[in-house]
Design a protein around this nucleic acid. Structure first.
Length: 605
RNA sequence: GCCCCAAUGGCGCAGUGGAUAGCGCGUCUGGUUGCGGACCAGAAGGUCGGGAGUUCGAAUCUCUCUUGGGGCACCA
């Protein structure tokens, strides 16, 4: 990457200046190379001279000058020491050469190697398998999938996992619901459970099972039938989920069963680690995790006053002073209790699963990092997972808990309320049907994960200039149009522009390899293309996928400026050929960006 | 009460401790004998919520206050 190259050269220049006695000896602090805000100042800029002023006991401008004097840039860029800044401007020769590099890289253009083969798991989706995939989960999977794309491009070995919550109370309710619909469909007067799932899809599932297996579950003991039907229901739901995911281009490498943590004995193997450290505490017939091993005390609870509030333990907010470094709450969380009525052998509490699961990720499967993509409703669960990870003797830096904000769905200027249990859900399929997969992904990726998204169906459906999705894709279609036209004019049938064929421009016979771009809009476009690597790095390190969306728009804008200023066809042959190459590189870059976002790059619109 | 997140032109949002804070929409003024006008150019519009601190330098880091969102169950 350019930035890294410049950093190395600056570092070398400083050492050379030191060796020459022009700068005193000092330890070089970490410094950055960045883009100046004003483009006229240069392409890259380093303020390292200012950082060194104290250590070197020299005025920054003088330091900058001496560093500049020792810089060897090999024609890559020119440097000018603007006061205390070192400003670099990439040379037209260098920029022109980079176009060839992009074309040679083809579909792997943008790949970098900050991951160095480290393994990282991105767990995303993981919605309860009790109903179809909702738009709410849509943001989750799109964030996770795009991050996985970015991490993969950044050189990590990535595994995409969906955690199937196939244990616990909700699953029991679900099984009862399926059973009730099953029985009702067979004409049996079976009451629908109070906590049941009311959605029509349960009826569909029941009918499908009847079509397959008839009434055989009515002949079983009721509990057994409920469990069996629950499992069948989950399978059916998950099949639907997979189909919905596929529509937005998402595939998971693994669907990990929560239940398996108990069936495999994983949970029982991990628990002794906490017990041996004295971090398991009995209270009120239940088993608790207590971060510091302290017994659980009775205390006043928050929220509405109820008769037996005083009987409840203070669960979360025992405050302790932490060596002056701020306050931290000791995490106290229930692991197992007779009051949790779900089959305790299958899943004591959700937190119990978390314990075994993090161990499974980091120890059994040895991921260097495990990323959890969680909705903001799980934000309160972060500290306890961190606490138990620490208690297990694992490095908490290896887990990253990403919290994204929910979306609000708007239609006809009204917020669409979604109720989970009520069956009033808007599925991801519904939205994809209405606005398309590309627009859905783009909207869900367009903002920082910390920002709430208002998904206005009417607005997104409108294929207008208010809608950035089409602006970006239009730029790609327009590029393809130019290349199509070029192919016609030149009559070169080998100039294919279908996806993947990015290198065919070399089929044109022309002395283009020596061509040096000079028009400001040409050079600006090349600079913009070269940013892709930086954007990949940014997304992969900050774990913020919206940078792709921002970049895609900016790239489309830069291309439009080039398109306005520079004709491709009908210029002098060497100019046309060189610009076609540039346009091809722009297509490669735009298509890759869209691919990283999981979007299509249409050739016509 | 405690914890997390946010606050940046009219609206929606970017912004990596660096120089004159950007983009889209909206508003106003313009642009087509030319590769796709689903486009482009120009203009107006800002005490980066308030205050203090750290730093050569703060929208960015720390503290604090205000406002908004979310979370604080032997639910998942």
């Amino acid at each position: 990457m350019i930035r890294e190259q410049l950093k190395r050269r600056i570092t070398q220049a400083i050492r050379d200046a030191q060796a020459a006695g022009e700068l005193p000896q000092f330890d070089l602090p970490p410094f950055t190379v960045e883009h100046p805000r004003q483009a006229q100042l240069g392409d890259y800029s380093a303020s390292v001279a200012m950082q060194l002023a104290r250590a070197a006991r020299m005025p920054p401008a003088q330091i900058a000058q001496r560093i500049a004097g020792h810089l060897s840039l090999d024609g890559m860029a020119t440097v000018d020491d603007a006061g205390a800044y070192l400003n670099f401007r990439l040379s037209p020769q260098y920029l022109s050469g980079e176009v060839d590099k992009i074309l040679a890289s083809g579909d792997s253009w943008g790949n970098i190697d900050i991951g160095a083969g480290k393994t990282v798991q991105v767990e995303h989706g993981s919605a309860n398998p009790t109903g179809p995939l909702t738009v709410a989960s849509g943001r989750n999977v799109v964030i996770g999938d795009t991050l996985a794309n970015a991490l993969s491009a950044a050189g990590f070995t990535v595994q995409r996992e969906w955690y199937v919550n196939d244990a616990g109370n909700q699953i029991r309710h679900f099984g009862e619901s399926v059973y009730a619909r099953y029985a009702q469909s067979l004409g049996v007067d079976e009451p629908f459970p109070e906590d049941g799932y009311k959605g029509d899809y349960i009826v569909e599932i029941a009918k499908a099972i009847i079509a397959q297996a008839g009434d055989k579950y009515l002949k079983m003991p009721r509990d057994e039938a409920r469990r069996a039907l629950g499992k069948l229901g989950i399978d059916s739901i998950m099949d639907g989920v997979r189909a919905s995911l596929a529509r937005v281009g998402i595939h998971h490498d693994s669907f990990f069963s929560e239940r398996s943590l108990y069936e495999s004995g994983q949970f029982e193997r991990v628990l002794p680690i906490l017990r041996n450290k004295g971090l398991l505490v009995e209270y009120d017939d239940a088993l608790w995790f207590s971060e510091d091993g302290s017994p659980i005390r009775k205390g006043e609870t928050r929220g509405e006053k109820q008769e037996d509030d005083s009987q409840k333990p203070e669960v979360r907010s025992q405050k302790i002073e932490n060596g002056g470094a701020g306050k931290e709450a000791v995490q106290v969380v229930v692991i197992r209790s007779p009051k949790v009525v779900a089959e305790p052998s299958e899943r004591p509490t959700y937190f119990a699963s978390d314990i075994a699961y993090v161990w499974n990720k980091l120890v059994d499967r040895r991921f260097d990092r495990a990323i959890y993509v969680w909705g903001e409703d799980h934000q309160g669960d972060v500290p306890r997972l961190m606490a138990v990870t620490r208690a297990l003797g694992l490095d908490t830096d290896r887990i990253v808990l990403l919290i994204y904000r929910f979306i609000t769905l708007m239609r006809n200027g009204q917020e669409v309320r979604m109720g989970k249990r009520s069956g009033n859900i808007i599925t991801l399929d519904d939205v994809v049907d209405e606005v398309g997969a590309d627009a859905t992904r783009f909207v869900l990726l367009s903002r920082s994960i910390d920002t709430k998204i208002v998904f206005d169906l009417d607005l997104v459906k409108k294929q207008s200039d208010e809608n950035p999705v089409y602006y970006v894709q239009y730029a790609h279609a327009r590029i393809c149009s130019i290349l199509r036209k070029a192919a016609e004019e030149i009559g070169d049938k080998r100039l294919e522009i279908s996806a993947g064929a990015t290198n065919t421009i070399s089929n044109l016979q022309s002395p283009i390899s020596s061509y040096i771009f000079s028009h400001p809009s040409e050079l600006a476009l090349i600079r913009k293309l070269l940013e892709l690597e930086e954007v990949v790095e940014q997304v992969a390190t900050q774990l913020q996928p919206h940078h792709f969306a921002t970049y895609a728009q900016s790239l489309a804008t830069t291309f439009s400026a080039f398109y306005r200023d520079c004709r491709v066809l009908g210029e002098a042959p060497e100019v046309s050929a060189a610009r076609m190459k540039l346009v091809q590189a722009a297509r490669t870059t735009l298509a890759r960006t869209l691919a990283l976002m999981g979007m299509s790059a249409p050739e016509r619109m």
